[in-house]
Design a protein around this nucleic acid. Structure first.
Lengths: 156, 156
DNA sequence: ACTGAAAACTGCAGGCC
DNA sequence: GGCCTGCAGTTTTCAGT
């Protein structure tokens, strides 16, 4: 599995992916090639899936976010619903959840008009979608792709 | 504001941040220095906030995710609650929401034990938290930091 | 995992449109 | 203002140890 040094690598890259190997190595107590090798190994093993830029949603015109809980009538309708999820860029997340509803979507769109279009026209027209419950996000206090790794201070 | 070329820059960097300027320039139809300049301008303007690695949560031992809806009794308790949110690595997201509840948290933790500890010991001990509602995520169909930019195919 | 050299990339300057 | 080319300095990669 991943060792302590790997966790520290991951921690660093989750905060700033565009760092130099030399700089990363300095933090890890390794030389630049050694730091690069550890990262490449983590990429190959699929532990680091990729890298992304964190973008201000409002700046690109997607200022409205919402959660949409979806109730599916029967299991045979899952396929079509999941295809919609994968093919719709506005759907940022889709989780199968425990509880009253079946799926929880997080969508990001241009405004209330756009949200209405997605909920009423797109989601509700999918066969098997019996009911939806939309919760609009008013403001965001925290939103980080950073996973909750405990700080790795010292490496023995 | 951002033009079409900026959107294409952002789109590319949301998918793979660790790209070379030359490669990015090729996609954009620009030279490497020009591509770099556009990115730096977007960073300065705060449209690109930073970069991060996308990490497999299970590989680093955080296999359980859950939504926690929080009801706050009075507005004066907000401060303390928001401090908890900012200082807790397990809290990945916190949104102020419209609807019955006040806040929606997304947390990621090691297991049910860990979740119990966060909900029962940490969140419910915050002054003003009247009630919480936890929804466990069973599986994740889609989870992307990629914002829903429409594909920019052609630049006039 | 480190060192050292070749190859590749970045950043800066000057000039063009 | 935004873009391109060329060069100097840095970073990455690939050996060998």
């Amino acid at each position: 599995m991943v060792d302590k040094l790997d966790l520290k690598v991951v921690e660093q890259l989750m905060e700033r992916a565009r760092t130099t190997w030399a700089e990363l190595g300095l933090i890890l107590g390794l030389s630049a090639p050694a730091a690069a090798e550890r990262v490449h190994k983590l990429e190959e093993r699929g532990i680091i899936r990729g890298y992304c830029a964190i973008v201000d949603p409002e700046a690109i015109g997607y200022g409205l976010a919402a959660y949409i809980a979806v109730y599916l009538e029967k299991p045979e309708h899952r396929q079509g619903f999941l295809e919609f999820v994968q093919n719709t860029r506005e759907v940022q997340e889709c989780h199968h959840i425990a509880g009253d509803e079946d799926y929880m979507l997080k969508v990001r769109c241009k405004g209330t008009r756009d949200l209405e279009r997605i909920v009423s026209e797109k989601i509700k027209s999918i066969p098997g979608v019996a009911k939806t419950r939309t919760t609009v996000i008013l403001s965001t206090e925290k939103e980080t792709p950073i996973l909750p790794i405990e700080r790795v201070e010292e490496i023995k």
